[in-house]
Design a protein around this nucleic acid. Structure first.
Lengths: 112, 112
DNA sequence: TGATACTATGTCAGATGTGATATATACTCT
DNA sequence: AGAGTATATATCACATCTGACATAGTATCA
C-alpha cells in the first residue's frame, strides 16, 4: 500500500477507480484482489442483514472475532479459503457465492 | 444437482448424489468442497481449451507442474487462493469465475 | 525400440495463514 | 460518569500451504 502514490495521483487529478489501477497489478493479481474485496463486502452485508455479531460468526466457524474483522477488511493475512468459509457459514449457497462475485455493485473501490 | 440427472443416475443404479452426502460434511464445509471441485474442473477445462500444458500454466503463475496437477485434482494441500490464481492466470474474468461456480453443470460428482 | 511430451503423486524445507490474546476506539445505555 | 457491546488492529506460537524436486505412468511419435 503506497499512500504517497495515491496522494501523487490524486494531486495530479486522477480519479482512482479500481484496485488494479491503484496498485498497478497484473490482470490475474487484480482479479484475485477484486474477488477478495467482493467477497469480504458480501460477507459483511450478509452478516449485518442476519443481525449477528463478528463474535457470533467467529464462534460458529471456530475462529475469533479478530479474524472475522480481518476477513471483512480483506486483510492480506486472510486467505480466500477463510473468507469463503465465513461466507458459507452465514448460510450462503454456492449460487450466492457466485452472485457475490458476479453482481453489478461489487467491483468498485469507493463512492467518494 | 439437476433433478432429472439424479433420477437418471439413480435409475442406472448409482446412489451417490452429492459430495456432501458421500463425505458426510456440514453444509458450510460441503459448500466449500463443491466450490473447490467446480473451480478445479473449470480450470482444467479452460486450460485444455486454450491448448496449454500444466507446465506452461505453472511457469506463467510461477508455480510448478506438480502444483497445477494438484490444483486440477482439487488436492487437499491446495488452497482456494492458488486455485483462483491459476484460474485467473488462464485469462478468466471474475464473471467467468462466478459462472464456473454458478453454472448448471459443475456440481455433480461423476458421469461414469 | 528409444525419445519426447504430458500428467500424477510423494516428499520436505521454507513461506504463509491461523486462532488466540491483548488492547484501543466507538457507541448505547442507565 | 461507568458498564456493556461491537469492531479494529498488532503480535506470536503453531499449523497449513507452497514451490521445487524426484519419480512413475501414459501416449505419441520416428
Amino acid at each position: 500500500m503506497d499512500e504517497a502514490k495515491r496522494a501523487r495521483l490524486e494531486a495530479a487529478g486522477f480519479k482512482i477507480s479500481t484496485v488494479a489501477e491503484f496498485l498497478g497489478l497484473l490482470p490475474a493479481e487484480s482479479a484475485l484482489v477484486e474477488t477478495r474485496l467482493a467477497l469480504s463486502n458480501a460477507l459483511k452485508k450478509r452478516r449485518q442483514e442476519k443481525g449477528i455479531s463478528q463474535s457470533t460468526l467467529a464462534r460458529r466457524m471456530r475462529s475469533s472475532q479478530s479474524r472475522v474483522a480481518k476477513i471483512e477488511a480483506a486483510d492480506p493475512t486472510v486467505s480466500l479459503d477463510l473468507m469463503a468459509r465465513a461466507f458459507f457459514e452465514t448460510g450462503a449457497s454456492i449460487q450466492e457465492f457466485a452472485a457475490a462475485l458476479g453482481g453489478r455493485d461489487n467491483n468498485e473501490l469507493a463512492e467518494a
